[in-house]
Write a protein that binds this DNA or RNA. Structure first.
Lengths: 177, 177
DNA sequence: TACAAGTTTCAGTAATTATTGAAACTTGTG
DNA sequence: CACAAGTTTCAATAATTACTGAAACTTGTA
């Protein structure tokens, strides 16, 4: 029987296609490109490793786009290269452990959204000013508040990234629910 | 003495301008428009309420842009209208409590980034499939993992939004550092 | 060294998102 | 009601960001 004749298989393929689509849409609101999110989704639900060629074909994207997207996902640590002996072509598999995936995403977003801001806040807070000026004190107090929050967020995210599965479930599920 | 002759005041104005600029740049990487972030920053460091006219002038943006941005910030709960008796013009002040500001931002981002995704994941997970098919089981297991993470994130963020200042510091600083 | 099979780069173009500015609208007042 | 002082809307445009496709590059093999 051709797999495509099997209703269950067909609906599985459809479900996967829908998942790829959903991940693409969500990706957009998470600040990554649709293509990046879709390549990630496709690899996440592919039991087998896929080549650049496969990605181009299944998502109808260009070779250049596929190449750059794959490189970025490798940078993030969300996918791995799989080299097959005697074959020139590169294949890619996704990290399937979602806790690990979450860590990678947190790391990347922290870098993009928090780290640069913290550096600049520190510079701003270091600017001299007249402590007798109420207006200056108010500004400085606001800065300090923001810095504190940034610091707490940073530590929280760092801790989350280091979290072991057991720690994660222990602390989080028990303390926050 | 003219305030602009005072070195401390001048450097304060510069620091504020730098802060508005920083917040604008950061806003971009946080997925909001530069203008939105800058208007918010400007109001955050303005002791007095500002009118639409003031915002247009200080940030050199158009009336339309100022109007739409202000409306969005009101939606987020990050700024408030201040109406002055006998005056037609509307003034705006920022919520200055940074914990409250954080809550508003978490709420908006959760809505944008998580809630829609959760709904669609639930739909996908509900699709029927053949439990005898290993490929189907793998897909379903991946979906379930993602759903679990989405659920935990949701609960964590919800808890964070409800956090009182004391709870926040108690739990977070003590447990996570 | 020449070639084949692949990958990467990047200038040009397409798609998306943000902003302007002017017209339409609202509202208080004589 | 007419007008003044303000606000909102939205079609047109600008700015940004993502994608394509072809040329340049890399690497293993004969």
């Amino acid at each position: 029987m051709n797999p495509n004749d099997n209703p269950a298989t067909t609906s599985l393929a459809e479900a996967k296609a829908q998942f790829v689509h959903l991940w693409g849409v969500s990706g957009t609101s998470w600040g990554v490109s649709k293509t990046l999110a879709q390549v990630h989704a496709l690899l996440l639900v592919s039991p087998a490793a896929l080549s650049t060629e496969d990605l181009m074909e299944q998502l109808t994207i260009s070779r250049g786009n596929a190449s750059m997207t794959v490189r970025e996902l490798l940078d993030w640590g969300l996918i791995y290269k799989e080299l097959r002996p005697g074959e020139r072509r590169e294949y890619f598999v996704a990290e399937k452990d979602m806790l690990q995936v979450t860590r990678c995403i947190i790391r990347a977003r922290k870098r993009r959204e928090l780290d640069q801001m913290k550096r600049t806040l520190d510079q701003l807070a270091a600017l001299p000013g007249d402590p007798a000026d109420a207006d200056y004190r108010a500004f400085h107090a606001a800065l300090t508040d923001i810095q504190q929050l940034a610091t707490v967020s940073d530590k929280l995210l760092t801790r989350l990234m280091q979290a072991e599965k057991s720690w994660f479930w222990d602390k989080f599920l028990k303390l926050f629910m």
